[in-house]
């Protein structure tokens, strides 16, 4: 019990004094997960909307694949991204393994199916005749898709929160492709794992608290936007 108490005390001290190492780790986490979420929003919304609006043979299989992808184990993603970026791997010539870039790629692979799956469900959930109504108003196909995305904005904001939540808290892939290099590819989750294994519970608790607070505030901002949109 004393250990936890001591840990929390140290954690607050590190936070209040804005410990440079802790700050660096925090900013890198935000940078990597933020970028991965933005890229996955682009990929997820485009593909999710396309699949939702089109009919083709094997569509159900594709939808099942997307839904399975929503629960992709980060370590499996880490493994495959590592193989691809490995010196002799297909994308080895980029030389980005053990860099924040590799972490962004891995996190994008994790978040994209989440955004895709939620987008797919959100667009499909809109009344079928809404599409006809938009076309009957004289919209081009692109205008129609844009209007549909706007109509689904509340679930799409949820998709963004789910995507970000998925990657900011993910550790397996980040440690595998980022390598947890001090001052370079160390993020909140990988640092927490390392400090815990070393028995530095105070720092681990501090990092854990920062992670929770960060996730809370980002979701708070997105929730504010989402709920403001809700008509009274």
């Amino acid at each position: 019990m004393a250990l936890i108490f001591e840990g929390i005390k140290k954690a607050f001290w590190l936070l209040i004094t804005c410990d440079p190492e802790v700050m660096r780790i925090t900013f890198l986490s935000l940078q990597v997960s933020g970028t991965a979420t933005l890229i996955s929003l682009f990929i997820g919304i485009s593909i999710g909307t396309t699949v939702a609006l089109s009919k083709f043979p094997g569509r159900r299989m594709v939808v099942s694949l997307i839904n399975t992808g929503m629960g992709l184990p980060p370590v499996v993603v880490g493994l495959f991204v590592t193989i691809f970026l490995w010196r002799n791997g297909p994308l080895g010539f980029f030389g980005i393994l053990y860099t924040p870039g590799a972490m962004i790629i891995a996190q994008t692979v994790i978040a994209s199916p989440i955004v895709m799956g939620i987008t797919l469900a959100a667009i499909q959930h809109l009344p079928e005749k809404l599409r006809l109504q938009i076309l009957a108003l004289g919209a081009t196909r692109i205008q129609m898709v844009w209007i549909l995305i706007k109509e689904a904005k509340l679930p799409l904001l949820a998709a963004m929160m789910a995507g970000f939540g998925g990657v900011i808290s993910e550790v397996g892939a980040s440690i595998m492709v980022g390598g947890n290099i001090k001052g370079y590819s160390r993020v909140l989750t990988t640092a927490t794992v390392m400090e815990t294994s070393r028995g530095n519970f105070d720092i681990a608790i501090a990092l854990g608290i920062i992670l929770l607070v960060l996730a809370y505030f980002i979701n708070l901002i997105l929730t504010q936007i989402q709920q403001r949109e809700r008509p009274r």
């Binding site: 009344p127 005749k129 809404l130 006809l132 109504q133 209007i147 706007k150 109509e151 949109e229 008509p231």
Partner: peptide, 10 residues
């Protein structure tokens, strides 16, 4: 076109 449901935008 106007349908049975108003199909208004949010």
């Amino acid at each position: 076109a106007v349908f049975q449901e108003p199909l208004l935008f949010d």
